[in-house]
Structures are given as C-alpha cells and as structure tokens.
Design a protein around this nucleic acid. Sequence first.
DNA 1: CCCGGAATAG
DNA 2: CTATTCCGGG
Length: 194
Amino acid sequence: MECNCNSSLGPFPSTYWSRMLFPDWAYKPAWSPGSRQVQLWHFLLELLGRGEGGAITWGSEWGEFVIRDPERLAKLWGERKGKPHMNYDKLSRALRYYYNKRILHKTKGKRFTYKFNFSKLILVNYPTNSTENLIPFLTLTLFFSVCMLSVDSCSVNFSSPFPAVQLPQTSPLSPDTSNPKAVSPLFWPTSLRN
DNA sequence: CCCGGAATAG
DNA sequence: CTATTCCGGG
C-alpha cells in the first residue's frame, strides 16, 4: 500500500493538525493523571511540524532532525517550561536520557543531529492500562501527523501482509473509539519498524 | 561537541 | 516518572 498524504487526505489547515498531532496520552506520564506537562519530544515534533524559524529542521533520513540553532532552541524550550536559564548543554542532557528509552538516538559524526524512533515513541508513552486495540489508531495519528506536517510530498510504502484496513470513518478530532478495530495492528510502515 | 553519573525538583 | 542542574571526562 502506498500513502500519499497530499493527494489522499490533505491538505489540511495547520490548526487542524496541531490539535490532533498529540493525543492526551502524549502530554502526561502515566504516574500523574492530572498534569499536562509538555514533554521534550513533543515540543520538538511540534517545532519540526511548524517549520519554526529554522531553529530545528528535519534531516535527510526518516525521523532524523538537525538542530540548526542550539541556543535558540534551548531558549524556546526554556520559555515553554518556564526555565529561563535553559541552554543547549542541559537540553542535550535531556535528549540523552531518551537514548535508554530508545525514543531517540544520535547519528554519530553529524553535529547537532539526532534521530527519532517513532514506533518506540508510541510504545513507551502509551498507557498500558488502556484498551490495547487503540494503539493502531494512535499509531496512525502520530504517523500521519508527522508525515503531513514535515514534508511536502509524503509517500511511504507499507509492507505486506496487509489485511483489509480502513481509516476511521469519523473525524480524527473525535475518533470513533467504539470501533477501534477499523485499523489493524499490522498497519505498520516498514520505515517505522526496527 | 558529546557522554552519562549524581543530586535534585516537581 | 521526566527533566533540570552541575560536572568530570573523552
């Protein structure tokens, strides 16, 4: 199967996608149900999606990004979190904590260059006590969001086997959770596997 | 620059 | 728990 985002689904207004870019589970760690503290990976994807000022941009490979202005990125991050003394040294330490969780890894040799692991990103942050079969939908949510916000023409080949899969019929803003099995768990792009 | 340990906060 | 802060080391 091929996904051509621009022709099949888009284009959509950016506000539309920014609202569905990160579902509720992305904002809060499982241990603090009430809080909605923004996490660093979330913030980065947000900037990457908006193409914010060139402080951070996508790299050549899938999921790879380059920090073009480290101190400015740190300043933006500090403003978001209310940490006026944030700098790249401290921000990069937070990025390094993602290595163990396999959310992120460094592309060695390339300065200021890191690479997302989107599948791990989902698995790590998905609340385990919730319904399992919602994962495919959330996968699609994150994948398509990143896909559509990051590149002009997004074309990805999906691997077989590929059972009958249909996208949710309702609006992504109010997903039909009563029919989560509309999307198969096998719906994983090859580029997201590892 | 990049790496992780250690202490600490929320 | 996720960072933040600080820092010795490569």
